[in-house]
């Protein structure tokens, strides 16, 4: 295990990383050898046989069976070796151990939601215990995403209406970057207009814009004890605080803030400022009062009644929010006046 990474490779943080890097560097050095051979020999010939004065008749050599045989067979054998190696480690990585910890992953524009055994969940931060195999069962609710942790050397597309599997074992505690590597767009222009109008510093823009490029997060590898503590606290979320405060936490942690502002500025979705009890115009021309029922419906089935002027792009939170959490969000909405 190489914790710091090399010139080409990031740190190794999973049990399969060393094998992948081994093959990578094997190809790397073989490539350097071949590259130097081709460029060196070409350059040498180009210099030695450079034209001096008028062109002249040159050698008629056009074949050499031994040479041609050699340069066909040796590369063929080498790539065959690379194929077998790559195939072998690929297969090793594709079958999860039986006792692997099961975590469900949902990709959505533009965040990752994780569901742990026992009903806890988290967004954009995957917490796993060190030294235990973990299997992710992944799906998407909108377009194709791809789950990629460079330090683990693993990546798997996350496709709507289909489950894809991925497993890993991270031996050491640490925090590792998670990316989405299947292009999935960015916010629409209407939102950007407001953000520009905000006129804050450049760095704020980086985080205020949402899209494929910052659909990421971290994988936190922790000790088993910490992991269990996390599950517990996650289950207990909302206990001991008021519904309103819990709702505000959820507003941020469940990525509502991506599209809905609380200060009245426009976004991908309607602002939550004064939303509770407001009469909303629906895209089919009718209007509806934003009461508990409507808000609950919009969270669980966002496409049912879309507010006029907005697009039907919100993912469903069916299965991701518990009743109590929806109540908390509604309670929080009531406070935003």
């Amino acid at each position: 295990m190489n914790p710091n990474g090399t010139l080409f490779m990031p740190p190794q943080a999973s049990t399969s990383a060393a094998d992948v890097d081994g093959l990578f560097y094997f190809i790397y050095y073989a490539s350097i050898l071949f590259f130097l051979l081709v460029v060196g020999v070409s350059g040498y010939f180009a210099y030695v046989y450079r034209r001096q004065g008028a062109p002249k008749f040159t050698s008629g050599i056009a074949h050499n069976v031994q040479l041609e045989f050699t340069w066909t067979v040796i590369p063929t054998m080498l790539v065959f070796l690379v194929f077998v190696w790559g195939f072998g480690s690929y297969l090793n990585n594709s079958v999860a151990p039986k006792d692997a910890l099961q975590i469900k992953v949902t990709g959505q524009k533009w965040f990752w939601a994780f569901d742990y055994p026992g009903g806890s969940n988290s967004v954009d931060t995957l917490v796993v215990p060190a030294g235990k195999p973990v299997q992710l069962t992944m799906s998407s609710t909108d377009v194709i995403h791809s789950f990629y942790v460079p330090d683990f050397r693993m990546k798997q597309d996350v496709v709507p209406n289909r489950y894809s599997l991925l497993w890993f074992e991270a031996p050491n505690e640490g925090v590792y970057t998670l990316f989405c590597t299947e292009y999935c767009g960015a916010v629409t222009d209407t939102t950007e207009a407001t953000w520009k109008a905000d006129g804050q510093a450049k760095s704020a823009n980086k985080f205020k814009q949402k899209g494929h490029f910052n659909m990421g997060g971290v994988v936190k590898v922790v000790s088993t004890r910490q992991y269990e503590a996390f599950l517990e606290s996650s289950n207990k979320m909302g206990e001991g605080i008021s519904l309103e405060v819990y709702g505000e936490q959820l507003y941020n942690s469940k990525q509502c803030a991506t599209c809905h502002s609380v200060n009245g500025s426009a976004g991908n979705g309607p602002t939550w400022k004064g939303i509770y009890g407001r009469q909303e115009k629906i895209s089919d021309g009718t209007s509806v009062k934003a009461d508990d029922n409507y808000i609950r419906e919009s969270i669980l089935e966002p496409g049912a009644k879309v507010v006029a002027g907005y697009q039907n792009i919100m993912p469903t939170y069916q299965g991701q929010l518990k009743d109590k959490q929806i109540d908390a969000i509604i309670a929080y909405m009531k406070t935003i006046k």
């Binding site: 399969s16 190809i27 790397y28 194929f83 790559g86 460079p150 693993m154 590597t181």
Partner: peptide, 16 residues
Amino acid sequence: TGIFLGALSVDIHLHD
């Protein structure tokens, strides 16, 4: 560099 990408396990890391 195409060889890196053709090798299955390395491509998993390098893809996209």
